[in-house]
Simulated assay, not measured.
Amino acid sequence: MPLTQDIEEYFAREVLPHVPEAWIDIAKCDERDGKPGIVGYEISFNRYFYRYQPPRPLAEIDAELKAVEAEIQALLKEVAE
Rank of each mutant, 00 (worst) to 15 (best):
Y10M: 01
G40R: 09
R13I: 05
D33M: 01
A80G: 06
L75K: 10
A59N: 08
Y52R: 09
R51Q: 15
K35P: 00
W23K: 08
F49V: 15
D6M: 08
R47P: 02
E14P: 09
F11H: 11
E9A: 11
C29H: 13
R51E: 15
V79N: 05
R32V: 05
D33F: 03
E64L: 12
Y41K: 07
V39P: 05
D25V: 04
E9W: 02
S44A: 03
E8S: 02
Q73F: 01
F49I: 02
E9L: 07
P17F: 12
P2N: 14
V15Y: 11
E21I: 09
Q53K: 12
E81R: 15
E9D: 02
D25E: 09
R51C: 06
Y48T: 10
G40L: 04
E69I: 00
R47C: 07
I43Y: 10
F49E: 12
P55M: 06
P55K: 05
F11K: 03
M1R: 06
P17T: 14
D33R: 04
E42N: 05
A74N: 03
A70S: 02
R51V: 06
E8W: 09
P36R: 04
E81T: 14
P54S: 10
P20E: 04
E69P: 00
S44Y: 00
I38K: 06
V39R: 09
R13T: 09
Y52K: 13
E9Q: 11
Y48L: 15
P57C: 04
R32H: 12
A74M: 11
E31K: 07
I7Q: 02
S44L: 11
I61Y: 00
V19W: 01
